[in-house]
Each structure stands twice: as C-alpha cells, then as structure tokens.
Design a protein around this nucleic acid. Sequence first.
DNA 1: AGTGCTGGTCTCTTTTTGAGACTACCAATC
DNA 2: GATTGGTAGTCTCAAAAAGAGACCAGCACT
Lengths: 136, 136
Amino acid sequence: MDSKIFNLKAKLELYKAMTNGGNFADCPVRDVIQGISGKWSSLLVMALAEKPYRFGELRRLVPDISQRMLTQTLYDLQRDGYVHREVFPTKPPSVEYSLTDLGRSMFLPLQQLVQWAELNHDAVRGARAAFDAAQG
Amino acid sequence: MDSKIFNLKAKLELYKAMTNGGNFADCPVRDVIQGISGKWSSLLVMALAEKPYRFGELRRLVPDISQRMLTQTLYDLQRDGYVHREVFPTKPPSVEYSLTDLGRSMFLPLQQLVQWAELNHDAVRGARAAFDAAQG
DNA sequence: AGTGCTGGTCTCTTTTTGAGACTACCAATC
DNA sequence: GATTGGTAGTCTCAAAAAGAGACCAGCACT
C-alpha cells in the first residue's frame, strides 16, 4: 500500500472530522478538542494520570494556578467525563479527584503530544528566538 | 517486562517533564503545549496539514474565526516554527501559509488526539448530558 | 481564644478574545 | 470615471475569560 496516499486520506478524513463537513457550528470533534485544550486541562490530566489527588494537593502541585481556575477546570473535566470527584466525609471533608476510564484513554494520545513536546522544545524555542531576532 | 511498571515510569517521567521537576516558572514542555493548545492553533494546523492555504482561504475555511485571531494565531504558529509564511509579489500580493517540517512532525501526535476525539465524542457528549441532567 | 486546615465562593482587576469598521492598492465592470 | 470587488491585514471598542486575593463555615489542636 502506498503510504503517501494513505496518509493523505487519513489527513482528509481527520480534517473533515474536525470541520464536520462544513457544519462548523456543531462539530463534535472541535467541541471535544476545545474541552481539553484549555490552559490547565492537559496539565491536570497529566497529574491525575500519575495518581489521584486531593484539591489542596493539586493546588500545591501546580502553584501558578489560581484556586478559581483549579475549581473550574476540575469541574469542566468532571462534566466531560474525564475526572471523577469523590467527597470523603472526614472532618473537614476531603475531596479526591481521579481519572475515569475515559480520562485514562484520553491520556494515551495526550501522552504522545507531551512526548513530542519534550523531544522538540529545543527546536520550538530555537525557532522563536530566531524569529524574534529577525524582528518578525 | 512488566508493562504496568513501564507505564507508571513513563507517566512519572512525562509528569516530571511537564512540571520541570518543580520549576514551574520555566518549564519548556508546558511552554510548548500552551503554544499549541490555543483555541484555533490545532484547527489551523489540521487544515494546513492537508495543503498550504492563503489567508483568505483560511478565513473562508474557518468562518467562525475573526480576522484578528487568524492573523495572530498564524503569527504565533510562525514564530514557534510550525508554519511557513511566504509572500508572492502578485497584485495584490498574496500570502501562502504552509506547515514546516517541525509543524508536520507535530501534526503526527496531534492527529492521534483528534482521532481519539473522533472516536470518543459520543462518550464525552454523553457524560456532559448526564452531568447536566444531574444538575451538577 | 487563637490558629490552621478543609474546599471552595465572591468580587475586582487585568488579559484575552470577538465584532466590525477601516486601510491601500489594483483590476475589472458599469 | 465612478463603483465594485478582491488582496491581507490593522485599529478600536465591547465582551468574555482568567488572575489575585479576601472571605466563608466547620472542626481540631494548642
């Protein structure tokens, strides 16, 4: 099989999936992608892929997130089914966040992207520096 | 080899990469991820993976992007080395945007994520509907 | 009685994004 | 010759999202 043609077909299919065949207002793929492409979503999913964490632990783990955004991002991740929220009736009550099966399955491709970022951040930073040096 | 242990190690390594071992202020992986996790970045990369496009073509292709955000997202993608911008001296001058080698290499893991989204958007929408029905 | 820990919410300010008018140039049309 | 249309943007102002920090209730410990 000609892998070039295969790749082009794959690209076109994915592009169509992402554009919903022209119906941009109601594209499920974009909807899903936007849900996980927020500023903090991927970082929290990466953290919870390691192990479950409590609210305060996550806050200390990611010191530059505001409490407000931590609440809201966890809420959104829970709403979309990536994260499970469990309240333990301790005093004071503690809340544990963990990945669901859906969250774990999404973690796999996300991992690929993070791996790519790890391998290529030098190239990206180099490109940025070169661009800025040329007074883009 | 125990694949469970391998996976845990992989997770921990990636989590460390994403948190830069505690140095959150200067983490190259988060820096790269945030550069491609904007609202329009992934969509434009997917479009340009199909073939090069001109500014106006992209604007018509993605009708719900504002001209301002199209300009800025393409600028950012160019600055980070994902996109090449070429001006042709026609009248009026036309500008073509295409993926660089770096952009194409980033497209591969991005593709995995979009594929996941395509396969799982029903689950996500279902989770969201169930959550909202429970008056979250 | 005061301090600290829990997981948040509320308000205010700053940043980011969106909507739409406006630019300059040229070609073809009316 | 004036109008219209297409090129790739920029500029300004309004709306939405994000960040900073105060505040809350309840209980434990000192």
